[in-house]
């Protein structure tokens, strides 16, 4: 029972961490970033490079975030800016970007599986059972991340500007907010979060050119179900992640893999705006 509870909690935390970057971008920019999976992969490879160079494994996370931020700024400028009024095309363009990133990674690192050192390995004892330490740390990371993003949106100048752009971009521009800058920074932030998430999940996964892909669709579904809000995303991660663990445990792990997609499709049919709205 305790294991099941921890499975749900840690799986949800991973989903939350992985989906956060996608949500920030969708929230502020109204843009679905299908390169999200590729960004996760970039994060994984950043971790590989950092530990391969002999640095401390904890450094992988800020390093990946930095790489993601720079990548995000560049991608926003080159690819996304012309597509702001064509949201469906933006999905396709970012998907194409994902293909390109995967190929570039293959050129540099080859097709094989790479490895990065984990900051922590082994298990910790909790509720009389031993449980993966890293997974428990991810719960902590998810909580901190949720709080930090909320703080960023509600207590900083950037957050105020971003919220203004979300609510009414023309008005925000009229008020002298540089919405172009807000968008660029947002995409940088979203990409940074995605890459950091990639580094965060590598201790549990292999690093290969397609490692991020399976996470893309699930993150996308979670973000839509969340209604694009931080508490909504937490709730969606818990509900759908929990459902996935339950189905995997009690029905079949194979069916478990589509739980999130199916539930999301149903929830969005009933509540098109997701859990946070109307």
């Amino acid at each position: 029972m305790a294991t099941l509870f921890l499975d749900i909690l840690t799986t949800s935390s991973m989903l939350f961490i992985v989906a956060a970057g996608l949500m920030i971008i969708l929230g502020v920019m109204k843009l679905i970033n299908f390169a999200h999976g590729a960004f996760l992969t970039v994060g994984g490879y950043s971790a590989h490079v950092v530990t391969d160079a002999g640095f401390n494994a904890w450094l992988t996370i800020p390093a990946a975030a930095l790489v993601g931020f720079v990548l995000g700024i560049v991608v926003e400028r080159v690819i996304l800016r012309p597509l702001y009024d064509r949201p469906l095309d933006a999905i396709l363009a970012t998907w194409g970007l994902g293909i390109v990133i995967a190929q570039v990674i293959t050129f540099i690192f080859g097709r094989g599986v790479q490895f990065a050192e984990s900051p922590i390995s082994g298990t910790a004892d909790l509720f009389d059972i031993s449980y993966s330490s890293w997974r428990l740390i991810l719960v902590l990371v998810a909580v901190v991340l949720g709080a930090a993003l909320t703080a960023l949106l509600y207590f900083t100048r950037f957050g105020l500007n971003a919220r203004a752009v979300i609510m009414n971009e023309n008005l925000a521009r009229g008020l002298g907010i540089d919405s172009v800058k807000v968008r660029a920074l947002t995409f940088g932030l979203g990409a940074a979060l995605a890459c950091a998430a990639g580094a965060l999940i590598t201790p549990l996964l292999s690093i290969d050119p397609n490692m991020g892909l399976p996470w893309l669709v699930n993150s996308f579904m979670l973000v839509l179900v969340s209604g694009v809000a931080i508490p909504g995303l937490a709730l969606a991660s818990l509900l759908l992640g929990g459902a996935q663990v339950l189905v995997s445990t009690f029905v079949s792990p194979i069916i478990g893999g589509i739980t999130i997609v199916v539930l999301a499709a149903v929830i969005l049919r009933i509540k098109p705006q997701g859990l946070s709205r109307g």
Partner: peptide, 15 residues
């Protein structure tokens, strides 16, 4: 490859 690595990592991570 990847499935083998992820499984082994997660097994070891779970002690």
């Amino acid at each position: 490859g990847a499935p083998n690595v992820t499984l082994t990592k997660q097994l070891r991570n779970s002690g």
